[in-house]
Design a protein around this nucleic acid. Sequence first.
DNA 1: GCTCAGGTGGTTC
DNA 2: GAACCACCTGAG
Length: 271
Amino acid sequence: MITIENHCFSIPQICRSGQCFRLDEREDGAYDLVASDHYLRLEPAQDNTLLYCTQEEYETFWKSYFDLETDYEAFQNRIDEHDTYLRSAAEFGRGIRILRQDVWEMILTFIISQQNNIPRIKGLIRALSEKYGNQIETEEGKTFYAFPDALCLAAVSEEELRQMKLGYRSRYILNTARSVASGGIDLAALPALEYAKAREELMKLSGVGGKVADCICLFALHQMDAFPVDTHIKKVVDSKYGGKFPFKRYTGCAGVMQQYIFYYDLKGEDR
DNA sequence: GCTCAGGTGGTTC
DNA sequence: GAACCACCTGAG
């Protein structure tokens, strides 16, 4: 078991910030997380969070996954002191981190996310995983399902996906799974690319436009300059920044600011 | 009925 | 380039 101080680290906030759709609160207040083929139980408390894993799993996987070696307070200190909106948003979302998630999972997740709401996205991902993903048995005896890989999904029919209520995204998922499975795009090569180049590569995939590519760049490739603009962000950028976000000021952490804004707009009371 | 939910792709000018 | 518009589904 590992203990993490809740200094710029909050599982409930990460859960609600909409970058991870496989982190769920249980009735007892603990959280279940599935990432790649790893399962983790977490227990958030007032001052710290307990992670139910070995030191080895923590060092080799979760420490990086939660980006625990990055100083998020330093990002918050870079916020323009006159920018009261962003300061409030960052304060409200203080415990958010940019996770380092699996590329294929993020591709699939954010193709599904388009014109969709968060509860429904979660349900669709769960259904897809249960139907096509590998089983994961936890020590508590519960069963979870990993994301289905591209090879598996490439063999599914569009009709089958439509029956799962994926709608018009079914075609995108199938086309993209086939591109990845056939090696038309090499996911393993993406982490070494610069942001602009990675974004361009991702946009070759069916159903991946600029917004989804930016989500993948930020939440999987950890390209901190990626700034996904969805309906929430567009609304805020238009109303608070006259249509232009000051990217230059936030080079290297624009994506973190995007998350603060997104979470504040979605969950904050005072807007 | 209508609009909206973390958009994309195709057509048209 | 920018401005449409079709596209699945379910909730309010």
